[in-house]
């Protein structure tokens, strides 16, 4: 419990740092006015709009005002939608959450069996194939996989819808695209975690007692190898959310990722900040949760506080 509390307390400076990083990134040189007005706008129009938006204030005043508002949950209005940015981001959360969850499901489905199998069959041909496949999965950029899947399964075979959202069928291709990339990394991690277990003292002891290999693996190794999977999954949260930026753009999936890409392109600073915050909180929470679950599952682990 003490561990938990001290971890929660650590979140506060982290969030503060994130706010500072994001603020610096977004405000130092960006001029949204140039993007908001058409190519034909006059200088006077630009200046009027800049003044109206408070962009002519000194930076520290802008930051102070910004932090004051952020603490109230007010990230300002989206320049693109003219509505509170936080609301717009939260509105997109379910779609991204759905995609992230089903991608994680794909990743787990692929990586857990593959990782464990290749560890058991270490240095065999199957191990080589699985390792090769997972490296390949890592070596192909997401957008490329997505476009290929669309061409194959939607345009040529007509099995799944190309893009958009609405039905479970719409979820299939984006989840595979995002899921396989993460599965690649997870397979490698799970394989080594399983190897570690197989090499550990008590498995050797079990073996030396003359127990059957399959029994050893089922009874002892698997259980212990699966515990780190929770942590491995949590470690991928950040990659997973990062991946939604690209996957959602390829598949026109109406989630936070696509929102962010467009917000950055349009210099919609309020949305960028709100979304970055939400993402950071999600990542931190998922790591914290994984930490707790891990400690619960594996009481051997003690942390130095």
């Amino acid at each position: 419990m003490r561990y938990f509390i001290s971890n929660v307390i650590k979140i506060i400076p982290v969030l503060f740092l994130i706010s500072l990083i994001v603020f610096i990134l977004v405000r130092v040189t960006g001029d949204p006015v140039a993007l908001m007005l058409p190519e034909t706008a006059t200088d006077q129009e630009r200046e009027e709009l800049r003044e109206a938006l408070g962009l002519n204030d000194p930076l520290y005043i802008q930051y102070f005002n910004y932090m004051k508002d952020v603490l109230r949950g007010d990230f300002g209005d989206s320049l693109r939608y003219n509505q509170p940015a936080l609301g717009i981001v939260l509105e997109r959360l379910p779609a991204s959450f759905t995609l992230a969850l089903s991608s994680m499901a794909v990743a787990v489905l692929l990586s857990v069996p593959a990782g464990i199998y290749s560890a058991i069959k270490r240095n065999t041909f199957s191990d080589l194939i699985i390792t090769g496949a997972s490296v390949l999965g890592k070596a192909m950029p997401n957008f490329w996989v997505g476009i290929m899947l669309i061409l194959l399964f939607s345009v040529n075979l007509g099995i799944f819808p190309v893009s958009g959202s609405g039905t479970l069928a719409h979820l299939v291709l984006p989840s595979i695209t995002l899921g396989t990339g993460i599965a690649a990394e997870m397979t490698r991690l799970i394989r080594s975690s399983m190897l570690e277990v197989l090499n550990s003292e008590y498995i050797r002891t079990a073996r030396s007692k003359g127990l059957h290999e399959a029994f050893v693996i089922n009874k002892h190794a698997l259980r212990n190898a699966l515990i780190p999977v929770v942590t491995i999954m949590a470690l991928q949260t950040s990659t997973l959310i990062g991946g939604t930026l690209i996957t959602e753009t390829v598949f026109s999936w109406p989630g936070m990722g696509q929102l962010l890409v467009q917000a950055v392109n349009l210099r919609d600073m309020a949305v960028v900040q709100a979304a970055t915050f939400i993402i950071a909180i999600l990542v931190i929470l998922s790591n914290l949760t994984a930490d707790l679950v891990y400690r619960y599952l594996d009481p051997r682990i003690k942390y130095e506080d």
Partner: peptide, 10 residues
Amino acid sequence: DSFLAIPNIL
């Protein structure tokens, strides 16, 4: 921690 909480690509 702050850097870890923001996805690289973002």
